[in-house]
């Protein structure tokens, strides 16, 4: 692949990048943080959470930094009053969609949703909570899927399909009824295609996919090694 050098402007600052990089990669390379949730290095970027939306001069709509290719001469704004407001609203919407009760969650303190809420300054939520009745799947010998904490980032789906190759997880239904399901919507423990590798658990940003045997606040995760593995494999199509 051609490694042509380009330069783009991010928040007024001129930043060097390589052709083929996304705005997110160019920003990270220059030490600029853009909030993300569904993004995980090494996995196909899907632009689903919309947290990383940025303003690009000359383009009428907001673009997700994780999928938009950086183009030579582009001028990008990653932080503004509107962007911050919108990012807050994304978090608010996620918080009301399902049952995110931090105080009794094993990922309390080690949760990306929580950290994002803190860093974006979400102190209250303007919308009524949905309080959906969602199950917890304890059928697997080692792991648990708690739908109440899921944000449908689909990292688990992608890591299982692209890195492990087992393709156990998929998103079922549409709209607000979407759910992560294993195989043919059966208890995880009965999904014969699961290799028990645990990559999905490590990739999950919240307390939705967790390991058994951890109490409240005890569940920590690391996905950097999985990302490194994925990048090395060239798993991204």
């Amino acid at each position: 692949m051609a490694q042509k050098k380009i330069s783009i402007r991010i928040d007024g600052e001129l930043v060097g990048a390589t052709e083929g990089m996304t705005i997110l990669e160019a920003a990270e390379g220059a030490g600029k943080e853009i909030p993300t949730l569904c993004h995980m290095d090494g996995l196909t970027a899907v632009g689903a959470c919309r947290l990383c939306v940025v303003e690009v001069a000359g383009i009428g709509r907001l673009l997700p930094a994780c999928t938009t290719p950086a183009q030579d001469g582009m001028s990008v704004t990653t932080v503004s009053a509107q962007l911050t407001r919108y990012r807050r609203m994304v978090i608010e919407l996620l918080l009301v969609e399902r049952n995110h009760v931090c105080s009794v969650c094993v990922s309390n303190g080690h949760c990306e949703l929580q950290s994002l809420a803190k860093s974006l300054g979400v102190s209250s939520v303007r919308y009524p909570y949905n309080y959906p009745r969602l199950p917890v799947d304890l059928s697997h010998t080692r792991f648990v899927l708690d739908h109440n904490r899921c944000v449908l980032c689909t990292r688990c789906v992608r890591v299982c399909a692209e890195v492990e190759g087992a393709h156990v997880w998929e998103v079922t239904n549409r709209g607000i009824k979407c759910r992560i399901t294993s195989e043919m919507n059966q208890p995880w423990g009965s999904a014969s295609s699961c290799t028990n590798c645990g990559k999905c658990v490590q990739s999950c940003p919240t307390g939705a996919l967790i390991e058994k045997g951890f109490a409240v606040e005890e569940m920590t995760k690391r996905h950097e090694n999985i990302s490194a593995l994925a990048l090395a494999k060239g798993a991204r199509p």
Binding site: V46, G47, A48, C49, R50, M89, V90, L93, L94, V96, E97, Y127, P128, N130, L152, V171, N173, R174, G175, I176, K177, C178
Partner: peptide, 21 residues
């Protein structure tokens, strides 16, 4: 639109649900 939303992105999936309510 709420019932036809694919559910992939947060604004449409959850936002339309709240707007409907």
């Amino acid at each position: 639109t709420h019932s036809e939303s694919c559910g992939k992105c947060v604004p449409c999936r959850v936002g339309l649900d709240k707007a409907l309510k």
